[in-house]
Each structure stands twice: as C-alpha cells, then as structure tokens.
C-alpha cells in the first residue's frame, strides 16, 4: 500500500467518523464534505479522473450545499438535548461492528486478491462519453428521467404545506 493511499484513507475514515459522531449538526455536514473530498482524491489516485471530478461537483458542490440548506431551514442546532437511549446505541454499534467484522473476514479470505498490480487502465472523458452515448444510452436516458422526476417531486413535496394554508 502506498503512502498517499494511507494518508487519504486515514483522512476519509476519520472525517466519516466525525460526520457521524459530532454533536453540532453543521460540524457533521462539514466533516461529511471532508470525507467526500477524500473519496474524490482516492478516485483520482485510482486513475478515474472523470469520477473524481464528478464526485467533487455532485457531492461537494450540490449534495453538500443541499444538506447545509436543510440544516439551516430546520434549525437543527436548536434541538433540545436528546434523551439517552443507551440500549439503542449499544445495539446499533454492535450491529455495525459485527457487519464490519464479517466484511473484513470475507475480504481477507477472498481468493480474488492477486498481489500483482495490473497496469493502470485509461478512462478518458472521450471514452466515457462514447460509452455513455452507445452502450449505456438507455440507462443514461433513465437517469435523466429519474432526475427530472426527483426534481419535480422534491419541489412538490417541499411546497405542499404552503398551498394548504
């Protein structure tokens, strides 16, 4: 394992843990953005330039800002201190740790792991566009339809209350 991978992995994992454990909601969102940036850097390190920059644009540019707006609109920081649900938290953490254990066990026992590193594949934007317009054109259209429906649906859901009054 290379040093850049170790640094990026530590940063990403630590930021993900921060996003799930910090108390102020805005700090959680900022930690999530750091974690997503770390993932984008990992994509770039893996040679998937388009995926890395798409991650930057979509997740940090759009989803991050969307979550910040939702936090501001719902005034999440003004939440009263929650009642302690120790039982639920212990149960949730136990489930998560056991899932991690099973996954790591399966990865370590897998026979897919060849120690030889294959040569870095190239994925230029031209190739990706070509594939999107030929072989994957139907999924692309479907994603366009889905995004349009999601756009209209979210506007409808968020507006509904105002029309009632």
């Amino acid at each position: 394992m290379s040093l850049p991978f170790v640094i990026l992995a530590l940063l990403t994992a630590a930021a993900a843990m921060g996003a799930m454990s910090l108390r102020p909601l805005v700090h959680c969102v900022l930690a999530l953005v750091v974690s997503l940036s770390g993932l984008a850097c990992l994509y770039l390190q893996l040679g998937a330039q388009f995926a890395g920059f798409a991650q930057l644009l979509v997740y940090i540019g759009a989803v991050g800002i969307l979550i910040v707006f939702a936090v501001l609109l719902t005034r999440g920081d003004a939440m009263p201190p929650r009642r302690s649900l120790v039982q639920g938290r212990v149960f949730g953490l136990g489930v998560a740790v056991s899932v991690l254990g099973v996954l790591v066990w399966a990865i370590s026992r897998s026979c897919l792991m060849s120690p030889t590193l294959p040569p870095a594949p190239v994925a230029t934007v031209e190739q990706i566009g070509d594939a999107l317009m030929t072989r994957f054109v139907l999924p692309l259209e479907l994603v366009g339809l889905l995004l349009t429906a999601a756009l209209m649906g979210s506007v409808m859901i968020a507006m509904q209350e105002g029309e009632d009054k």
Binding site: A16, M17, L39, A96
Partner: peptide, 8 residues
C-alpha cells in the same frame, strides 16, 4: 469501514 460508520 466507511460503510460501517454510515450504518452505525
């Protein structure tokens, strides 16, 4: 690890 943190 990231999946598990999200799940937790």
């Amino acid at each position: 690890l990231i999946f598990t943190v999200g799940l937790a």
